[in-house]
């Protein structure tokens, strides 16, 4: 008895025409997008020596203006802390309203609408608007981070509530408990650990985002950083970047530690 001597693995897309068509589409897209971007290759070819030059000017990092550096860093940290706190408080009502199994339909749609809207726009866009409304400075940054935190935490709360065990809710409801009592006895115990975890994660995320809202004038270390790039002060830029990396790294370790404890 003889056996086949060739074997090909079954392909994800069984029709060869579609399979090759997909590859052709990918290649066509690459050409189209590269063409559409109007890339200035001459300018890019200069980029490599420029990058070298930039790196040379970055070293050694200049930590001498430490007062300016620390003021920015502390402002970023304060923005992150304050925004996380306000965010975790305000997110609770919004999250409850955004849970389909607790809130009536109109409330649900409004809450979800707010969450989707504020999550769609990048922090920097929101920051610009707050800068226009309340002027330059940390208040705009703080408000931006609050908006981002509220929508993020609220989304998590709403999803947790939707995924929670409804049997427990029914059991408490069966005792004749009112809605607030229901929240305290059946909902809160189920979502509290993850809620705290999400808040801690958000603190960590706010720390990272607080470095960027400054670029449009909303306070924090980002403002200082953006200024150093405009002045070609690359050695100071590097000092700030190193500080940010260290700060975020410490923040991440802290956040992992707390979340480990909560488990």
């Amino acid at each position: 008895m003889s056996y086949p001597t060739t074997w090909r693995p079954p392909s994800l897309i069984s029709t060869p025409m579609y399979r090759y068509g997909l590859w052709a589409a990918v290649i066509a897209y690459l050409f189209w997008s590269m063409g559409a971007l109007e890339i200035d290759w001459h300018r890019i070819s200069q980029g490599i020596p420029r990058a070298g030059n930039m790196i040379v000017r970055m070293f050694p990092p200049d930590f001498s203006r430490s007062e300016l550096l620390w003021r920015g860093v502390i402002e970023s940290i304060q923005m992150a802390f304050a925004a996380s706190f306000v965010g975790m408080v305000l997110a609770i009502p919004l999250g409850l309203c955004g849970a389909r199994n607790l809130a009536p339909a109109p409330v649900y749609y409004v809450a979800r609408g707010i969450i989707v809207l504020s999550r769609t726009f990048h922090e920097v866009i929101i920051a610009i608007f707050f800068v226009k409304i309340v002027g330059f400075g940390p208040l705009a940054g703080l408000l931006t981070l609050i908006v981002a935190s509220v929508s993020f935490i609220a989304k998590m709360i709403a999803e947790d509530i939707e995924n929670m065990n409804m049997g427990q809710v029914e059991a408490v409801r069966a005792t004749g408990a009112s809605f607030p009592k229901l929240l305290i006895y059946a909902v809160q115990p189920q979502i509290l650990p993850r809620y705290l975890g999400v808040c801690i994660y958000r603190l960590d995320a706010n720390l990272r985002h607080s470095t960027v809202v400054g670029i449009v004038g909303a306070g924090g270390i980002g403002m200082t950083l953006s200024a150093t790039f405009k002045r070609y002060d690359y050695d100071f830029s590097l000092a700030i970047l190193i500080t940010i990396i260290a700060l975020v790294f410490i923040g991440e370790i802290f956040s992992n530690w707390v979340r480990g404890k909560l488990r």
Binding site: M1, Y3, P4, T5, W7, P9, P10
Partner: peptide
């Protein structure tokens, strides 16, 4: 490329049949 020599493919088919999984190769 999953492009194994012809002998290997043939003996793989043979072995699959021998262990009772003939036809299940894909």
């Amino acid at each position: 490329r999953r492009n194994y020599p012809a002998d290997d493919v043939a003996s793989a088919f043979e072995l699959l049949e021998r262990v009772g999984l003939g036809g299940r190769h894909d």
